[in-house]
């Protein structure tokens, strides 16, 4: 065999051996504390109950509502369509597997937003993307959607539209025999969509 190529082959294997004996650093996915601080400071992770309800009613496949309360609490009452991952099993391999799909918006919820926000920070630290927190938690959702109160006719039309939306959504989830109406989407004005910034997930390779 040609001598020149032998030298090249040895060089390539030496480069490989260098890689082999390189200590594998474990910093790959975890976030630095400074970066995490900036992320925590950003309020755009909070989604309103109405926005989430709107997407739940539409059976949006890109939404995953994750209830981080204990299994008992989840059994007692839960938002229809949510899945239960108790906080203590948030970082198991299977949970991370469920959450690692970047194309799905993962929304955490708990009774208030406290536990959900803890879950958010843990997941963020773990390098999981497109995660959100339901503002006000399950309690607020229950107050808004299930115990929705009719506004007086003198209120602004947005309030009435919001009421109609919530009532219809409530019927969609739990059914009410009295009035039959179609779920109307929220008026555009009151919906603020927080989309994860496009970039890494867009495109299609080559």
């Amino acid at each position: 065999m040609n001598k020149r190529y032998l030298i090249l082959a040895i060089l390539a294997v030496a480069v490989g051996a260098g890689i082999l004996f390189m200590p594998e650093t474990d910093r790959d996915k975890e976030m630095k504390p400074e970066q995490l601080l900036i992320a925590i400071d950003d309020p755009s992770r909070f989604l309103t109950t109405d926005l989430i309800t709107d997407r739940l009613v539409k059976n949006d496949p890109s939404l995953l509502l994750i209830d981080v309360r204990t299994a008992e609490q989840f059994k007692e009452f839960s938002v229809p369509g949510s899945v239960n991952i108790p906080l203590d099993s948030l970082l198991t391999t299977s949970s991370i597997g469920i959450m690692s799909n970047k194309d799905i918006d993962k929304v955490f919820c708990s009774n208030s937003e406290l536990t959900a926000d803890q879950a958010w920070i843990l997941a963020k630290r773990q390098g999981i993307e497109t995660i959100f927190v339901m503002q006000g938690g399950v309690n607020k959702w229950f107050d808004d959607i299930v115990k929705v109160e009719e506004p007086s006719p003198t209120e602004p039309s947005e309030a009435i539209a919001l009421y109609r939306f919530r009532k219809a959504a409530s019927q969609h989830f739990f059914g009410t025999p009295e009035i039959k109406s179609v779920v109307q989407p929220l008026p555009k004005k009151s919906v603020t969509v927080h989309k994860a910034p496009a970039g890494a997930t867009s495109g299609g390779g080559c």
Binding site: V13, G16, L20
Partner: peptide, 22 residues
């Protein structure tokens, strides 16, 4: 597998393939 082990094996396999090709 470990990343570094896989990378090393890939390089060795490539060099082996070059010899096979010749």
């Amino acid at each position: 597998m470990k990343r570094n082990l896989f990378a090393f094996l890939l390089i060795v396999a490539a060099v082996g393939m070059f010899y096979g090709a010749a």
